[in-house]
């Protein structure tokens, strides 16, 4: 087990012990919610893992690298940003997906822009956001998020 995994599990156990001391009934309820969420997300996680396996086992890294790698340039970044804005993938699953893209020689910038646009911009939830918060605020938030996602990714790409 990696040190990260150990850290996360210790953190979870610590939280549970603290919560259990403070409120037993609520902790039990939290367990049930956690368990339900686990089995709800499990099939999607497994589907993505199968895809990752096929992707890494069948597609040559040089092909990925040409589209969204270091030599792909700014066009590749915009392409990934648009993809991330449109796709509606649970954020938790975007990270193994991103790791597999890195493994097949996508650039760090492309991976960062993918995750940031995926989480920050919601094209599918946009109608709801407009309904609740108004057109002006929703469009400004999503539009500016698109630009800052690219800025964030370019900075990450240049420092890592």
């Amino acid at each position: 087990m990696s040190s990260t995994a150990i850290f996360i599990n210790i953190f979870a156990v610590g939280c549970i012990i603290l919560a259990f001391i403070r409120d037993r009934a609520k902790t039990r309820q939290a367990f049930i919610i956690g368990l339900k969420s686990f089995f709800r997300i499990l099939p999607i996680v497994l589907i993505v893992i199968v895809f990752i396996g096929l992707f890494l086992g069948l597609v040559q890294p040089s092909k990925i690298s040409k589209i969204i790698g270091d030599q792909a340039g700014f066009g590749g970044i915009i392409f990934v940003a648009l993809l991330g804005s449109i796709l509606h993938i649970p954020a938790l699953i975007s990270f193994p997906l991103a790791a597999s893209l890195l493994e097949s020689e996508a650039s760090i910038t492309a991976v960062a822009v993918f995750i940031t646009t995926l989480t920050m911009i919601g094209t599918i939830t946009l109608p709801l956001e407009i309904k609740e918060l108004g057109k002006k605020m929703a469009l400004l938030r999503n539009g500016i998020s698109f630009i800052i996602a690219i800025i964030i990714a370019v900075i990450i790409g240049s420092i890592l």
């Binding site: 939280c15 956690g34 893992i49 396996g53």
Partner: peptide, 24 residues
């Protein structure tokens, strides 16, 4: 299968803990 298994193992090491924290 090797690649899938590697990602599966990495995910399963943390997913239950992450979901419990979410529930809490």
């Amino acid at each position: 299968t090797t690649k899938s298994w590697k990602y599966f193992a990495e995910m399963m090491m943390i997913l239950p803990a992450v979901m419990l924290i979410l529930g809490l």
